[in-house]
């Protein structure tokens, strides 16, 4: 029991600080790497605004177009299940909010545990469906490299360990919680250096696409 407790203390102490530092510095470096490359200003006479179409694309790309949805429903549905389930279990689980509150000094209302529990199951299901899709869909199979499977695992482990810890399926509890925190640290450390960065960069990508189209008078 003491070993497990020591492990938990280390995981939520030093290890967490190190992981969080790497995450924050890494994300800043990556965003700087991208933004510092810049984008030449076009000398052509604009046919439309860039700002509003850019912002609109940031939002509108969250929904799939009808044709794509009909052709690849599994990719779209698995994506939604996973992302929505993840956001609920990450941001609306009361212990997560309390941790945030204790660290930063503010919080927000959470959802009752059974709902978060269901969201976690949905997220795990979505991730498993996405993995199955990646392994069987010929396009995804060809596109996927080691990194795609690595980021899948990095995302899956916190959900799995969180679920196991909440349901007391690993004993003793400090070990379960320690493993959950450790899996998140692994995610945080590798986040800036992998495709997990899309969490941030997709807003840039969508904005650039929408803005460049808006300039030409097209809404993308």
């Amino acid at each position: 029991m003491n070993d497990a407790m020591d492990f938990l203390l280390w995981a939520r102490g030093t290890a967490f600080d190190v992981a969080l530092t790497i995450f924050i510095i890494g994300v800043i470096i990556r965003l700087f790497e991208i933004l510092s490359l810049g984008r030449p200003r076009s000398l052509a006479e604009p046919k439309g605004n860039q700002l509003l179409p850019g912002m609109k694309s940031v939002i509108s790309r969250t929904l799939p177009d009808n044709g794509t949805f009909k052709r690849q429903p599994l990719t779209v549905i698995a994506g939604y299940l996973f992302h929505i389930g993840l956001l609920i279990s990450l941001l609306l689980f009361i212990p997560h909010i309390e941790l945030f509150n204790a660290t930063v000094g503010f919080g927000w209302p959470g959802l009752p545990n059974p709902i978060v529990d269901a969201a976690t199951v949905i997220a795990i299901t979505g991730l498993l469906a996405a993995l199955w899709n990646r392994l069987t869909n010929p396009v995804m199979k060809l596109l996927s490299d080691k990194e795609d499977y690595l980021v899948w695992l990095l995302t899956f482990l916190p959900l799995l360990t969180g679920y196991l810890a909440y349901h007391r399926m690993i004993e003793p509890y400090p070990l379960a919680l320690g493993l959950h925190i450790l899996s998140i640290e692994l995610l945080l450390i590798l986040f800036p250096f992998t495709k997990l960065m899309h969490t941030f960069t997709l807003f840039l990508a969508r904005w650039y696409n929408g803005a460049m189209s808006g300039f030409r008078g097209v809404q993308s």
Binding site: Q72, V76, R134, V139, L143, D148, T201, L204, A205, Y208
Partner: peptide, 11 residues
């Protein structure tokens, strides 16, 4: 930004 964002979804 584009390459950083691609998650190989194949859509």
């Amino acid at each position: 930004a584009f390459f950083s964002s691609c998650v190989s979804c194949g859509l």
